[in-house]
Amino acid sequence: MMSKKVELMVGFFVALGIAALLMLSLKVANSGLSGGGDSYNLFAKFDNIGGLKVRSPIKVGGVVVGRVSDISLDEEDYTPVVTMKIYSEYNQFSEATSVAILTAGLLGEQYIGLQPGFMDESLDILQPDDFIEDTKPALVLEELIGQFLFSQGSGDE
């Protein structure tokens, strides 16, 4: 009763649909949240995080080594605490490592730039859940302009 062509075409249709879904989830989206591999957390306190968002990339010299997984305020001193999820293959950062919130291009997205510090016997390797002490806050355009105008004004006098 049921023609073979119908079954074949329906099979083709469903397979194509599932293939499309698979391609969308694997090739188009960044596959999975925690997926890919293991990671560990580092923390950093900033005075100002600017436009940093959860899932913003963390880069070392332009190479993505992790993502921001959480942003919250410290309960005691009300400074922003950023939780950084670093891929476990990059687990050799020294204590002298510094982080800065940078902007990609003039109007681009903000990301965390990680500057690996020098290695020394006196310095330990950063362990999971350590805080990075050396941080530079995000540059806020209004403050920059304000400072510029202020210095201009004082220079004239």
Partner: peptide, 19 residues
């Protein structure tokens, strides 16, 4: 083209919501 796309497209937020 592909990598920036993968960077910006989120499975839960974009693909799942579309579905």
């Amino acid at each position: 083209f592909w990598s920036v796309m993968q960077d910006q497209v989120d499975f839960n937020k974009d693909i799942l919501n579309g579905i």
